[in-house]
């Protein structure tokens, strides 16, 4: 936190001369009055964003903990149910999300170095990759719908007990499960939809904000030295990426070898 007039590339002097009135003459127009310096404002905003992300960590943490406890209790059922997920779709989605994190990070860089076209390209790519993720998720959800594996909405115990009698389950060549295991697969799918659904909701919110940012970036926002919004959105997007990294490992991978 310094009072130095040279505040890095993000705070050029172009914005300094913007406002005519004496009140704003001293600092960029985007600096709020209750902050002493632009740096102080950026630090405070960054801190606040991290506090928000920590509440998100606790939120998803609760879901992860529930998953771990039930997986421990109904281990064979969870192993059997996790084999219903297609690791290829999961890997592809991981790839898509990591790429989108990269394009988002590049977006922050473009914003910092004031490249308007670069920023718009990066935000648009992030937007497209986010949509691609949701598209792949939809394919996966659709398969679950076909096989009656959606607890509370479209679930059939029969498809686990006797897959041959269920048209869709028979198509995928599933093997039958004993009754107690079949019953507990419902718990796995409940947690699967709760966790990936919450994650997808975060993606949808993120994509909506990205759309808003693309429009604003076109008008020259974020490349005038005021990078806070892009930077903090980047934190959110990367956080959502991290949640998926763990979801992928826990839901798709850990029982794959059995």
């Amino acid at each position: 936190m310094s009072d130095s007039p040279i505040a890095g590339p993000a705070h050029g002097h172009g914005a300094l001369a913007e406002a005519g009135d004496p009140h704003h003459g001293e600092h960029p127009s985007y600096q709020r009055h209750h902050f002493e310096t632009v740096d102080q404002q950026a630090d405070a905003t960054n801190f606040a964003m991290w506090l928000f992300l920590l509440t998100e960590v606790m939120f998803f943490g609760g879901l992860f903990t529930a998953y771990l406890i039930y997986r421990n209790w109904y281990y064979p059922a969870f192993v059997a149910a996790s084999h219903q997920l297609d690791v290829r779709w999961g890997s592809l989605n991981t790839l898509v999300l990591i790429l989108s994190s990269f394009t988002m990070a590049m977006g922050v860089w473009c914003s910092e170095t004031r490249r308007r076209n670069g920023l718009m390209l990066c935000l648009t790519l992030t937007f497209i990759l986010g949509m691609a993720f949701l598209g792949i998720k939809t394919i996966e959800y659709h398969e679950k719908w076909e096989k009656h594996h959606i607890p509370g909405l479209h679930y059939s115990l029969q498809s686990f007990l006797d897959p041959a009698s269920d048209e869709a389950a028979a198509k995928y060549g599933d093997s039958p499960l004993p009754l107690d295991m079949a019953r507990h697969t419902e718990l796995y799918f409940f947690l699967y939809f709760a966790m990936t659904g919450m994650h997808a909701l975060h993606m949808i919110i993120g994509i909506a904000i990205l759309g808003f940012m693309i429009v604003r970036a076109r008008a020259g926002a974020y490349t005038n030295g005021h990078v806070t919004f892009v930077e903090n959105f980047g934190l959110y997007w990367h956080f959502v990426d991290i949640v998926w990294i763990y979801l992928f490992a826990l839901l798709y991978l850990i029982s794959r070898h059995q």
């Binding site: 310094s2 040279i6 890095g8 740096d39 990070a105 590049m106």
Partner: peptide, 27 residues
Amino acid sequence: MSEQTNHTEHEHHVTSPTVYIVILFSL
């Protein structure tokens, strides 16, 4: 609030694209 710029405390480090590319490949 000292007048001296303390670079370790400075918010506006610009990470270069090279670093981002290396991290992308590591991921």
